[in-house]
Design a protein around this nucleic acid. Structure first.
Length: 414
RNA sequence: GCCGCCAUCGUCUAGUGGCCUAGGACGUCGGAUUCUCAUUCCGAAAAUCGCGGGUUCAACUCCCGCUGGCGGUACCA
């Protein structure tokens, strides 16, 4: 392999930029980085009927957010119709393609064997020409089909490695035949096992969404998205779980891509997000939160307050997503007290009022202990009465951040 | 149906003929720390390596068959 590595992410803007798509983009990117090659972007907008207006922007936004930016010019297949037409008719004149119903078709020779070495699993895959039906390369609306456009562009762009989902394996013979008919060398093929949902079928909207941007909006860190996506089907060996983009860039090898279909595990993804939240600096986390809550005045006010750093520190270990932050730091009581609890709250209020002078941590803690013992009230209840929540940031941390007034307000609230 | 890909704990996976009475992680369960919840730390259960044949002194690792899962079978990508 003497030529410089050149790969491309070639999404079709027909729907959401889903997890499978982003993983393909990521593997392309990692491979390019690892081999000091080029990573390009090509928009395959050849299906006029299924085109979704917002999809293209979503793709750009996603790549930008994840910082896996392509270099070079972005190619739109819809702007290259003349090129595909020219090549389609070249095949017609070579008698490889024929016209029917206003479209250009190709038929594979029945007796020909199509074989290539797929780099995932490094195995030979072979098809007999007879298993492939005639296929359209140029549609009657003048647009090319995937088969033609993909082959033509990859050749013209000098793509060395085609990373794509394994759903393309069955049509690779068509592509092989096209390369051969044009007298072009075909690129290496890297067919990635498709990601499955928890019900073991191809991951789709049915499994509860999710575009990568949805995950962004749910409070996932880009590091976690990248990290989890990469590990879904690739493993550099060893016990490593947490990896940054640059670490992955230096470790990525095609031979470490798994051959089996991975199942997307939301729970592990959340765990990994928590790991990332805990591993960035408080200052960095503050910035992420600030950005995440930019439309939420209430939270922005909290993040911008003097106590911001303490709050974020206290919340860090308790977040799995950035979205958890709001409930954690909210001053509003989240559960109503029972009649019984109201009585205890009143007692506790009087007790603390009598006992505490400075409301410092030491005083507060020993008073709570005393109250708990004397009245036989579990700490859990006291926590609830003081904080207004059944779980969350610790009492002493809250004392540092919000102080006496906050506790008294909670004790008095109904 | 036909064609193709795949097959290690529930899940992600390590493992490339002897180091495996199969290792790690998530999750689950138990415990420690503890002001609740988390975090952190310990520990446990969890795969007779899908099944059946080979090859070999030796197979999770190689070969064949079966079964199962997934994918493709459009003038969609």
């Amino acid at each position: 392999m003497s030529s410089k590595v050149k790969v491309r992410f070639a999404p079709s803007p027909t729907g959401i930029a889903h997890i499978g798509g982003i993983r393909t983009a990521l593997y392309n990117f990692l491979f390019a980085k690892k081999n000091k090659g080029e990573f390009l972007l090509r928009i395959e907008d050849t299906d006029q009927k299924r085109l979704v207006k917002e999809a293209e922007n979503a793709i750009f936004e996603m790549l930008k957010w994840l910082e896996i930016q392509p270099s070079g010019e972005i190619i739109h297949q819809s702007e290259r119709l003349e090129i595909y037409k020219k090549y389609a008719y070249e095949l017609v004149s070579k008698k490889i393609a024929y016209e029917k119903d206003g479209a250009v078709w190709v038929s594979l020779p029945d007796d020909k064997i199509f074989e290539w070495t797929d780099l995932v699993g490094n195995k030979k895959i072979r098809f007999e020409g007879s298993t492939q039906e005639d296929f359209v390369i140029l549609k009657s609306d003048g647009f090319p089909t995937y088969h033609l456009a993909n082959v033509v562009d990859d050749h013209l762009m000098g793509t060395t490695h085609v990373f794509r989902g394994e759903e393309w394996i069955s049509s690779t013979p068509k592509h092989l035949y096209l390369y051969e008919s044009f007298n072009w060398e075909h690129p290496e093929f890297v067919h990635l096992p498709v990601i499955l949902g928890s019900d073991h079928t191809k991951l789709s909207k049915r499994h509860g969404a999710k575009s990568v941007l949805d995950y962004k909006n749910e409070g996932y860190l880009k590091e976690a998205v990248l990290n989890y996506m990469a590990l879904l089907g690739w493993n550099p060996g060893g016990d490593r779980e947490q990896m940054s983009l640059s670490e992955m860039e230096s470790l990525f090898e095609i031979k470490d891509i798994n051959t089996a279909n991975p199942i997307f595990d939301q729970t592990k993804f959340e765990w990994l997000n928590g790991v990332w939240i805990r591993s960035i600096s408080t200052q960095e986390l503050q910035e992420r939160l600030n950005e995440f809550y930019s439309d939420d005045k209430e939270v922005v006010k909290i993040i911008k307050s003097e106590k911001s750093e303490e709050l974020v520190k206290a919340a860090t270990s308790r977040m799995r997503t950035l979205a958890d932050f709001k409930n954690l730091v909210s001053k509003d009581p989240q559960n109503k007290k029972t009649k019984e609890e109201e009585k205890i709250a009143e007692k506790l209020n009087n007790f603390l009022d009598k006992k505490l002078k400075n409301w410092d941590d030491e005083e507060l803690l020993s008073a709570i202990r005393e109250f708990s013992k004397e009245e036989n009230v579990p700490f859990k209840t006291i926590f609830f009465l003081l904080s207004g929540k059944t779980s969350g940031i610790g009492i002493l941390e809250l004392n540092q951040i919000y102080g006496k007034d906050f506790f008294v307000a909670n004790l008095k609230s109904k």
